[in-house]
Design a protein around this nucleic acid. Structure first.
Lengths: 192, 192
DNA sequence: GGATTTTTGTGACGATGATCACAAAGTGTA
DNA sequence: TACACTTTGTGATCATCGTCACAAAAATCC
């Protein structure tokens, strides 16, 4: 548990340094939570109740489009798992976040997070910097998608996110990089 | 010019309401700037000096990948044109932002923006909310890319960003949605 | 307004990916 | 262990896309 707390602290500090006092406040609103494989953190039609800082396991965010599950994000250790649109707007979400393996982490309730934002500029800044980072990452990913062909997209994953390839069913990865399941299966064969 | 100021005010208020005093401060650090078609707001190798709030015209953000210009964002009226990675890190950028038509807007210097962030939680909140919005949009775009085939991607643009299709060379749009220039040309022919 | 540059269209071709159907392998569970 | 369910692999076929080459059209610039 101490390890988990340290991971949270280190991760937050990468974005913005909180005082010990502030970190304690952050910890106060973080409750340890476990999800068994296949359990949902968020389901289509539900409100988004907050963010899970992942300390163990892996989750996937997907959307149902034309009866297909399109995975668009994965969250592993030290990631903040949530769906930003429903978190920011407080409308119900049309996306799902599911535990791909047994998962643990700190759950930060949306309502309490908003209170934290009100308390000090430090938390706002933390939020802003985290979002800057996420936006930059998402932009990079988009560029990768539009500029590379399927095989090179898979190589990109191999190089930049090898941990995903180990732990995530190939069919999910296929939707993530925008290719058919069968095609990715053949790409893997060619490359081995 | 008053119109431009009102547009800025309205746009900012969509994310977070500033007091009149705060908005004046924001205006104080915003300087009117014009860019002729083909002028650069940011060039590969340069530092990112700030954000252009666009009041007229259109800009494109592209990256050179394997000798190809891949456009990954467009900014039109009431958008905040910048490249987030270099804005946040203050490393030089590997991307370019160029005026696609004659463009005008308010330029917000990065250094002065950072000072604003220090002054009041209100500006931090504005930044955070804007970033939440942008991240959500970017995520939606990524989903669109991975889940739709080329023709449907173009239809998506037609429906959601018709203003882009009017003003932007087809070859740029093609890279934006990840298809070859010739293919998009044929898609347009099929659809007409 | 004519020449140059840039952008767009198009034909032909080969390569690649999507799809359907089914088999095989793997996983979880009673 | 046996059974069901999920995931992955594979073959065959068809449709689509990318690429190269060149022509046409449009925009830009003296």
């Amino acid at each position: 548990m101490d390890d988990a707390i340290n991971l949270l602290k280190t991760t937050l500090h990468n974005f913005h340094k909180l005082t010990d006092e502030e970190f304690k406040e952050f910890l106060k609103i973080s409750e340890y939570k476990t999800l068994a494989k296949k359990e949902f953190l968020l389901q289509n039609g539900q409100y988004n109740h907050g963010i899970l800082f992942v300390t163990k396991g892996i989750l996937g965010l997907y959307e149902l489009i034309n009866t297909k599950e399109i995975y668009t994000s994965f969250f592993s250790v030290s990631d903040f798992a949530t769906e930003i649109s429903s978190l920011a707007s407080q409308n119900t979400s049309n996306k799902n976040i599911v535990a791909i393996s047994d998962t643990e982490g700190f759950f930060i309730k949306r309502t309490e997070l908003l209170q934290l934002y009100d308390k000090s500029i430090s938390f706002e800044r933390l939020g802003r910097k985290l979002l800057e980072h996420l936006l930059s990452e998402q932009h990079t990913f988009t560029t990768m998608l539009t500029s590379l062909k399927p095989e090179d997209r898979y190589k990109y994953l191999l190089e930049h996110n090898p941990e995903l390839i180990q732990q995530i069913p190939v069919q999910y990865l296929a939707s993530y990089i925008g290719v058919a399941r069968e095609t990715l299966s053949r790409i893997r064969k060619r490359m081995s």
